[in-house]
């Protein structure tokens, strides 16, 4: 059901099954290794190979074509003195932080609200999940329209007679990222809500009874008891949200194209424009490497705390 649970119980399962089928282990183990080979080979060659290649070439002055002319840290110097890159990184950090908090909070609140018997529940679940089943390109275009000052929300509210109403995030460099965030939340919240709902359903009814008997208010029960119990569910949700954040690209392309000016640029777009626009592969490599590095810096300590600690216990 959840990453943490799976990872945690693999060892347990290993112990159980090795006892049951000792006779055939010698025969089966080599087969199981062979079965894993294609997948591991692909993962190694593509992900590790591609990553290492990118990092090595980020230290060269490759232009239109990759060349192994050593340039030291020059590309990184240039990268960090480029305003567009700084803006990209800030935007991604803002979007990542806000969408993580927003999706979790809204998703959990909705799930808690709906954690009762409801008619046509299956239908609702599908509806809540539909946005997630759409391409970011479609989401971006639809929200570009909804947020359009003339035809979208602002225009309609003004048409109702509230002339001074102003809601135009996509043309305001200061808040354009929030315009993207709304679309991102619309796309992702339903999914998180469904996962949270499943988690809430898995909680024993007796816990609710006990807290009612003790006279603990409902909100306090959620915060003190239910949420800590749902830790694995939160981890699954976080992994899904995070993998969506590092991919942030299509939404920006469809919704704002990086504008107004450079105010909604993101790192993936920077790499793209270095590669196709200014034909400066070295910059693209350096930017990619920084992206990889920052993900690794965030991921490793977290993964270690989350999964590494359980190895011994």
């Amino acid at each position: 059901m959840a990453v943490a649970e799976d990872a945690g119980s693999t060892g347990h399962r290993a112990a159980a099954s090795s006892g049951a089928k000792r006779p055939s282990r010698l025969l089966r183990n080599p087969m199981s290794k062979i079965a894993l080979v294609p997948m591991i080979a692909i993962a190694l060659v593509v992900f590790l190979g591609g990553t290492v290649w990118t990092i090595v070439y980020s230290f060269t002055d490759s232009g239109l074509l990759p060349r192994l002319d050593w340039a030291g840290l020059e590309q990184y110097d240039r990268l960090w003195s480029t305003r567009k890159w700084i803006v990209s990184i800030q935007n991604l950090a803002l979007y990542g932080f806000a969408s993580m908090i927003g999706t979790l909070v809204i998703g959990f609140t909705l799930a808690a609200l709906l954690d009762r018997k409801i008619r046509f529940e299956g239908v609702f679940r599908s509806i809540f999940l539909y946005p997630f089943a759409l391409s970011f390109i479609v989401t971006g275009l639809v929200w570009q329209w909804i947020l359009n000052p003339q035809f979208g929300v602002q225009g309609i509210v003004r048409g109702w007679g509230w002339e001074s109403f102003s809601f135009d995030p996509l043309n305001n460099p200061n808040i354009v990222m929030w315009g993207l965030l709304i679309a991102g939340l619309w796309q992702g919240t339903g999914l998180v809500m469904c996962i949270m709902l499943a988690g809430l359903r898995g909680i024993d009814e007796d816990i609710w009874k006990a807290s009612r008997v003790d006279g603990i208010p409902v909100w306090k029960t959620y915060i003190r008891v239910i949420i800590p119990m749902m830790r694995p569910v939160f981890v699954t949700a976080l992994v899904l949200i995070a993998s969506g954040i590092v991919k942030l690209y299509d939404l920006v392309v469809a919704q704002t194209g990086g504008g107004p000016g450079i105010s909604s640029e993101v790192p993936a777009k920077y790499v793209m424009s270095a590669m196709f626009g200014s034909q400066n592969l070295g910059q693209g490599f350096a930017a990619s490497s920084m992206m990889l590095l920052s993900v690794v810096i965030i991921l490793i300590p977290w993964a270690y705390l989350e999964f590494g600690g359980k190895k011994r216990g």
Binding site: A43, V46, F47, A242, S243, M275, S288, L299
Partner: peptide, 19 residues
């Protein structure tokens, strides 16, 4: 292996785009 494999999903795809 499982965790490492899943972690590749967390890496930004731009990292391997150019190669």
């Amino acid at each position: 292996v499982l965790m490492w494999m899943l972690s590749t999903k967390m890496l930004p795809p731009v990292g391997v785009l150019i190669p």
